[in-house]
Design a protein around this nucleic acid. Structure first.
Length: 455
RNA sequence: UGGGAGGUCGUCUAACGGUAGGACGGCGGACUCUGGAUCCGCUGGUGGAGGUUCGAGUCCUCCCCUCCCAGCCA
């Protein structure tokens, strides 16, 4: 590393860690958090972070999943120094080690009822102690662990074996992974011992659960990094949020840049308790990041996002689009919300929220009020926020009504919604022509309705 | 069932054995334009029962609950 991100004196030298997903689906947020902790640990210690694809299940592994995982890693900003290595390309290595274990008497050939012959590792009757960096010492009685397959009949290694062979071969110094692997660890330690390889350090980090406290699965809605990207979350926001699931910097600071996370990250401050993924708090954090992002940056990102949402922005200048973003800057928590809130800006056929029209338009006297608004502002020479405010406040003052009496009907008429950015700013941005047209259409529709009812 | 891990506000978290604090949410105000924006305030917790101790979220015992491993899945 040319520019060392960490100048603290707690740096461990020679650190090599890895993230080793199996390519059976998208990168989910639990895996992303495991990758993040490994990455933070590597960067904090100026070590090496490598990627290894555990594609040893020929049925379930796909090229598409591998691509999706790599893309998600890049999107999150988790760059790797080595790899990706593919276990499917290392078959001879596993075979060699497995046969050596057989030769040593630590493993044996075993044929099952279906006639498939595999190599099975023989567990001893000893006590195995795992000194975990997060959990402390954990003791296992190896006698209760059954012999397990290390090399399958198809020549592929099983998980525990491939993991140990590769971690040893790739000189991994710290194994940081989900604590669902704690129960696998005594098997892996037994393998290390049989292979006479030095053990890595272990840090088993707590799992991330769904919002109902159960293990993450598809029925929890969005669980993959890809889905959060597609909803328009900023990668840094998701990273920051994930970092704080199971780790804290030791104070009350919640918004941390990548650099700060790297500086402050320590396995000592990783806790043992699983965390439920709370989308509501993610939204809050995402909103914080949106607010801290410049209008220029947001405008560029928003344009891409609008296009992906089938909203044509080609006729809208950067200047005009950035004015829209500026108005809504503090009102959206992800780009999808921006799209939902500002659809009215891009179309002449505004979608009207029925609840909003019921509450603010389909009321007695509203049509008359809007007509007055219409004629008042159509006389304005400078259709800007100051001119509009002066004109409309004047109108309500003369009529002796509260300003919200006209603000809400106008808002619904021109945006279709009961909540929006400031009403003068919105009218200014839409422009005189569009504003008047929408008011006119609204008035026509209302009169049509009231006439029909015979009022 | 056997083995393993873990239980602090609804959620994420903090607390050398020494006043259980922060954040999100929720609720309530304020903003003579909305609120799903912003600001302010409030609410709410150590799974249960014993024990050790001047003092227990923290240490001990028993119980309860959740999750993981026990696949030729990872």
């Amino acid at each position: 590393m040319l520019d060392s991100m960490n100048k603290n004196d707690d740096v461990i030298s020679g650190v090599r860690v890895r993230f080793a997903p199996s390519p059976t689906g998208y990168l989910h947020i639990g895996g992303a958090r495991t990758a993040l902790f490994n990455w933070l640990f590597a960067r904090h210690n100026n070590g090496v972070f490598l990627l290894r694809i555990e594609d040893t299940d020929q049925q379930r592994s796909t090229k598409e999943a591998t691509q999706a995982i790599l893309e998600s890693m890049k999107w999150l900003g988790l760059d790797w120094d080595e790899g990706p290595y593919f276990q499917s390309q290392r078959l001879p290595i596993y075979k060699r080690y497995a046969e050596q274990l057989v030769a040593q008497g630590n493993a044996y050939y075993d044929t099952d009822a279906e006639g498939r012959t595999a190599i099975r590792f023989k567990m001893q009757d000893n006590v195995i102690i795992l000194n975990d960096l997060v959990h402390g010492a954990i003791t296992f009685d190896a006698a209760v662990i059954e012999d397990f397959v290390i090399l399958k009949a198809d020549g592929f290694p099983s998980y525990n074996f491939a993991c140990v062979v590769d971690d040893a071969d790739m000189k991994i110094t710290h194994v940081i992974r989900g604590d669902d692997h704690i129960s696998n660890t005594p098997k892996q330690i037994a393998l290390y011992n049989a292979m006479e390889v030095r053990l890595p350090e272990y840090a088993h980090i707590p799992m991330i659960l769904g919002e109902d406290g159960s293990r993450l699965s598809k029925r929890h809605g969005a669980t993959s990094v890809t889905e959060y990207r597609d909803k328009g979350y900023l990668p840094q926001a998701l990273v920051n949020f994930l970092a704080l699931l199971g780790w804290s910097p030791g104070n009350d600071q919640e918004i941390l840049s990548m650099r700060e996370m790297i500086e402050k990250f320590s396995l000592k401050r990783v806790n043992k308790t699983s965390a439920q993924f709370d989308n509501t708090k993610l939204n809050w954090m995402s909103g914080q990041y949106i607010k801290n992002t410049s209008i220029e940056e947001l405008t560029a990102a928003a344009r891409l996002f609008f296009e992906k949402s089938d909203i044509d922005t080609t006729g809208i200048s950067i200047n005009r689009l950035s004015r829209l973003i500026e108005l809504y800057h503090e009102r959206f928590k992800n780009l999808q919300e921006l799209v939902d809130q500002t659809r009215f800006f891009f179309t002449d056929s505004v979608e009207y929220d029925p609840a909003a029209t019921d509450k603010f338009l389909k009321r007695e006297g509203i049509s008359e009020i809007l007509k007055e608004v219409y004629s008042a502002i159509s006389l304005l020479n400078s259709f800007d926020r100051q001119g509009l405010e002066g004109c409309l406040r004047d109108l309500t003052a003369k009529a002796g009504i509260g300003f919200s009496k006209i603000a809400q009907p106008i808002r619904v008429a021109i945006t279709g919604r009961s909540a929006s950015a400031g009403i003068f700013e919105t009218m200014e941005l839409l422009g005189k022509e569009t504003t008047l047209k929408r008011l006119e259409n609204t008035i026509k529709n209302m009169d049509g309705i009231t006439n029909a009812v015979g009022l």
